[in-house]
Simulated assay, not measured.
Amino acid sequence: MDTNNKQSVVHDGWDEYANKRIYQSRGKVGIWRSLGLGAFSFFSISMQGLVGAWLMFFYTTFAGLSAGQGATIFLIGRVADAIVSLIMGNISDNVYKYKIGRKYGRRHLFILAAAPAVLIAITMWVAGMNFWYYLITYLIVTVLMSTLQIPWETLPNEMTKDFNARTKMSTTRMVLAGLGGMLTQFVPAQLFKYFPKSSPEPYILMQVIFSVATFFLILITYHTTWEHFVTKKEAKKLEAEALEENNGQKPNLKSELKNYFSTFKIKTFRLHMGIYLSSYFATILFSTVFVY
């Protein structure tokens, strides 16, 4: 054995993880790789995609809740989602500072956690429970979705610097999300053929189908994507930049919120945010009313 070419691995809890598979580029990003990344988009569909179309109807028909109670649950969930979304990106960006983040990846750690977490969405569709049960289950699912999906959305920028490749990945995942949205209407329609309209069973069954399928699709994303490994040198540089941005002080929640809200000073950002929120609200409103 040629010992001259053999590199010794320093078990320091940092560099020893640099050669893990999740940090290794596996060639050109083509359609199959894009499909692997986009498969994760079914996570939001299985966790919340069914919610927009069917959950309010389920609450008022099989859970004994009023429309006002259902709307209250959605409102509290949206507020919680906004708060978690503000801090989750920062958590994912900085989890490399800990051994678990370097070992499993600051993005792939959350992708791996998403696989079993997607099964929790099934708990929302249990009939005959009280208001607090439905509020808690909805909050858990909503918070989990933001916690686990935001790190995944950063992967295209880490997998390649090529604009065309990133565009291909983004387009593919949007197409898959669109197809998934169609399935949220098609699958329940097929189940309703075999169950009476007075039965809550097709609702929990459709969630089981989507959750189990998504469990395996998430694993496909985990094994077909990679991310950037933050070296010790890069970590020092990032810490120095963070200190410079915060006038020599370590970043905290207050400084992160300040940086976030500073983006509203940009007119173009405000315009696009308004368009997004308006279209999102209109889509949810239409799909909810359409069911009734």
Rank of each mutant, 00 (worst) to 15 (best):
L243V: 02
I76Y: 09
F43Y: 15
M1A: 14
E16A: 04
D2E: 13
A114R: 03
K197V: 13
Y96S: 09
N90Y: 08
D12R: 03
I275E: 07
T160F: 06
N247I: 00
F74Q: 07
K6W: 01
F131D: 06
Y260T: 15
T137E: 10
R166A: 10
P156S: 08
W132D: 10
P116G: 03
Y280Q: 13
F281G: 04
F261R: 03
R78D: 02
A80G: 02
S25H: 04
K193D: 11
L86N: 00
L205M: 15
T283A: 12
T184W: 01
F210I: 07
F195R: 03
K103H: 03
T283N: 10
F215M: 14
K265G: 15
P116A: 05
R166C: 06
T214M: 08
G180E: 07
V79Y: 01
F286G: 05
I209W: 10
D162F: 04
V51S: 15
M206W: 03
V208L: 13
N5T: 07
F42H: 12
L65N: 11
D12V: 01
Y138H: 14
L191K: 00
G38I: 12
P196N: 15
R102V: 02
L191C: 07
F210W: 04
Y59V: 13
D93R: 01
S198I: 04
